[in-house]
Amino acid sequence: MSGWTRFTGQAVALPLESIDTDQLIPARFMSAPRGEGYGSFLLHDLRFDSAGKADPAFVLNRHRDANVLVTRRNFGCGSSREAAVYALVDFGIKAVIAPSFGDIFAANAINNGLLPASAGAAVVEDLIAALGADTAEVGIDLAAGAIFLAGRGIELRLAPDARDKLINGWDDIDLTKAHGQEIAAFCARHRRQAPWSWPGHG
């Protein structure tokens, strides 16, 4: 995964609370291999009717070029399905700005280069009102910890470890490989101290 520091794009408002992972990608699409791209599954049942026809009024159908979402609290709550993040990323979304995120979703997002930017509820409401049904240019600077959107400068709230990972595009497996000896030592000690932790033979 390649890292990124600065980004300029188009933001739209999705003024809903608790957009859960089942809405981000309905379960029936999850057996598809990633190679085909998950962008068409994003918010599928909100974007398309049961006959597969796009709802022309839905914000992401009107603004297919949108790449930053501004939404309400508890975005990405629910299941651990990383496919929810794949759907956002494959659609072209680079960042989601909301007052809060589901914990597992936020971790999955960082692992895929998607920024879960938390902002105060009042700030988000102000942005939603400013955006209305239109798009606005948005600039994000991870290093400076700032978002510029609809003429406003917003503090980017992001844990330092998450910021570093996004900027450097770190892959955890690569990082962990460097600690192979420590892991082996822990495993040996753990096996001595808590032998019952290893499963019996069933």
């Binding site: 990383e82 993040v85 971790a107 892991i183």
Partner: peptide
Amino acid sequence: FGIGATEVAHVLATQT
């Protein structure tokens, strides 16, 4: 606790 696919791959590869 539940984890996403990237973390699943990490646990498979490192048990951590």
